[in-house]
Amino acid sequence: MGKLFAVVVVVIAIASAVPIVMHTWAPPVDISTHGHAIDEQLKDTMVEAGISFLGAQLVLAFFVWQVAGRKDGPIKTFPGGARVMVIAAILLVGTEILALGVLGQKAWADVYFTPAKPDALQVQAQAGQFAFYFRYPGVDGKFGALHPDKIDEGNSNFFGLDPEHDMDSRDDVVTGELAIPVNREVHLLMHAKDVGHSFYVRELRIQQDFVPGLDLSVHFTATQTGRYEIVCTQLCGLGHYNMRAYLSVLSPDDFDKWMKEKAAQ
């Protein structure tokens, strides 16, 4: 029975690794300028974790194969005993951690430690149960102030703007779809209307929570035109599974055209 255990463990370990090695279910192609650092990091970690995983499972299987049901012969101790293990764990894992930790800092820093460029396209995203809305500042480049008491979904006033009294808000463009120009940085200002939500675009390698009461922002540059899904990843209530919007990455000309169309509405 011990030998069976060893075989099953080996089979499970190899079977588990196959889809990873074959990239059967892999992340989609990255379309952001920062994403390659995350992908590299993911790949390196996969190699190191994969080696640890396979190594440990195979050693477990091997030892169990050797000793299961053994009745004769003396009890033996692993050469070097615990000391070897302590040194191995600290050296191997320690260096691995340092390597990953340092590399990880770089990938993380790319996303979070550099501020958005001043000429980045500013877009405000509002998440509410269970839809995203986006607001562009319009020709004046200024967002109008928000008045939560004026929010009226029936009247399409999703953000609670007050165009009657607020000049800045008159030319604000509100859409249900996030259109951005390719190869231009976007500074996404995030605002939660009700509860926590999250902004997740797999292809962009961006995930950031909307936290009520906290105005957060992310910035990113998309490098490929196309249409991608934005989904909510923070549990927000009964419609959570259905809360999504589309991200359209457009060529600069198409974006200007789109913007004009939307502004005219």
Binding site: G2, A56, L60, Q66, V67, R70, T77
Partner: peptide
């Protein structure tokens, strides 16, 4: 894992 080595499991 190391303890398994040389045992009578």
């Amino acid at each position: 894992l190391g303890s398994l080595y040389g045992s009578k499991l």
